[in-house]
Design a protein around this nucleic acid. Structure first.
Ligand SMILES: [Zn+2]
Ligand SMILES: [Zn+2]
Ligand SMILES: [Zn+2]
Ligand SMILES: [Zn+2]
Lengths: 324, 324
DNA sequence: GAATCAGGTCACCAGGTCAG
DNA sequence: CTGACCTGGTGACCTGATTC
């Protein structure tokens, strides 16, 4: 249960949830990625052959908070996920294993970043809500490998989340965004810059039309609000996170969605196909460098790196494979 | 414990098991073929003169999984197989040593390839299983590198698998047959073609006679059948893999076994020592090219490659090392 | 120069500890 | 009983020395 709230790429395996209770894991224990608690529990129950009995019907659903309340179901889960004395593995991971783990960590890391953004948290003020936005400006630098023209710098407003409405239900859902993105050159077109324009505009909140049985922007016949962002063809994964919000929150959420995006840690990530810029940071706590942040770029020349104009130099790019 | 799943001739000595624990070895350490783990263990125990005590009675049977659980028996085994500070040998192997190692590697490599074949995998369809059969006609082409005579082509029908049923249990077991075989050139004689004659007949599975050190058909006093191939280092029948199947799967399995051996992916594999024919496929799904398949060859001229007569051309052969 | 291995390194984890 | 933290063993990988 001990984790410092801060998401760091460095703390690494902790991003992968415990296969037993879902808490942050601390490594592979008895063959399974588990937390310290479940590891210790499994060891103890094997040392002393106590028999636990479930007060209910062996169907308790475990999580990090209630895991200690039903040892019977906890042990059952431990065995079910494959924990075993015979499955222990010592020593350093092989490079292959490491790669595989990296992929898993990357996935959960991105998912966590995403979930973190999607959260609706009460603020210090009574009754108010702090809404964290899953939509952010994403500054990306790339070089067209095929034409070998000089690099273009693009500020993409990635509408990574969708704010959705159903009669009686409002929710945000977001495809999980990769931490680094690798685009094949073929997907790099000249249209992306155009999309940044859209983020500057504010749309009125659509309302549900009982007659038309659909959401529509008042005064407009076409509910075209998010149609532009669909053309971005971002390499999103099929996984997505969803958070329901109340009708009241929806107003606030919508307002933020309709506002031009602010600074984001992802501004610090410069990725091109298979190459990662040397300035890319390992650690990406949300909100870092908030004061240094620049607004959405208006033109390629606006792009800045740590307050100074970005200069593209070949030696700053290294293979993405070694970047992690 | 680190090995990359894929079997490769390149990884070479890794195919030979550690003499202490049976894990993949990494070379000759302190005079004995051992894995990295046992090598490090031996070094450490000699550096610090700790005394280990077995919890049982110094009779633990070691394997790659449990080797770390009883240092006492591990050290005992290390000494028993001859590991010693005095036995260290530096530098490159002599040609003689190399040859001997090649033979050993060849044996274990073939055994591993064989084990890999025997698998029952669920298919995309619900409840369906893809059965990979270890019983197959085996077409082999080689060139005698020493005499440089024209290649002989052999079709060996190896009945390598048995489908077995017991009350409440159905399973396939198979002596490990080589998928590819790597023969040291010195072991390629002029007699092999003779074996093709046998393939026309249904014969009982030959077994490796540990005393005679050769393959023999049970019930025959003269182990003449495979006398020529004796030196081929076929894996012994003592090594076998078993896969349990459900009662339902058993029907499918039986149907396949009861059918005369049809085409096989192995028809597509032409292997000679250290050379692989360019037509050799990396992927060999069972049943592929079923329509193109030819029966067992009656003569070298019968041999066909994808429906057309096989023409041996030097440029079609490439080093096996890069082929996998 | 290539092959080969002893020794060192340090990422990893089982087991123990002890405050909560 | 729990689980955050510590400790010592483990083994994948690297480096420098040795031999063909
Ligand atoms: Zn847990
Ligand atoms: Zn329970
Ligand atoms: Zn070993
Ligand atoms: Zn023992």
């Amino acid at each position: 249960m001990a984790h410092n709230g801060k998401l760091s790429w460095k703390s690494y395996i902790g991003h992968v949830p415990c296969k037993v209770c879902g808490d942050h894991s601390s490594g592979v224990h008895y063959g399974v990625t588990t937390c310290e608690g479940c590891k210790g529990f499994f060891r103890r129950t094997h040392a002393s052959k106590v028999v636990y009995l479930c007060q209910r019907s062996n169907t308790c659903v475990l999580n990090a908070r209630n895991r200690a309340s039903c040892p019977a179901c906890r042990l059952q889960k431990c065995q079910r996920v494959g924990m075993s004395r015979d499955a222990v593995k010592f020593g350093r991971m092989s490079k292959k294993e490491r790669e595989k783990l990296d992929a898993e960590v990357s996935y959960h890391y991105n998912a966590a970043l995403c979930a973190q953004q999607l959260s609706v948290q009460p603020s210090a003020e009574e009754g108010a809500m702090n809404l964290t936005m899953p939509s952010y400006p994403f500054n990306m630098v790339w070089r067209n490998e095929e034409t070998d023209v000089k690099p273009a710098i693009v500020n993409q407003y990635i509408q990574s989340a969708t704010f959705q409405m159903q009669p009686g239900r409002y929710f945000i859902s977001s495809p999980m965004q990769p931490h680094f993105m690798h685009f094949p050159p073929s997907q790099l077109g000249g249209q992306h810059w155009q999309n940044a324009q859209y983020s500057q505009t504010q749309f009125p909140m659509p309302e549900y039309d009982m007659n038309l049985q659909q959401f529509a922007v008042p005064g407009q016949s076409q509910p075209r609000m998010f149609s532009e962002t669909k053309q971005l063809q971002l390499p999103t994964s099929s996984m997505s996170a969803t958070v329901d919000v109340s009708a009241q929150e929806a107003q606030t959420v919508y307002a933020q969605f309709a506002t031009p995006p602010g600074p984001s840690p992802l501004n610090q990530h410069f990725v091109q196909h298979n190459l990662v810029h040397s300035s890319t940071q390992d650690e990406t706590p949300w909100g870092k460098n908030a004061l240094d942040a620049v607004g959405p770029a208006q033109s390629p020349d606006d792009f800045q790196l740590n307050g100074t104009p970005f200069v593209d130099a070949a030696e700053d790019w290294k293979p993405a494979i070694d970047a992690y």
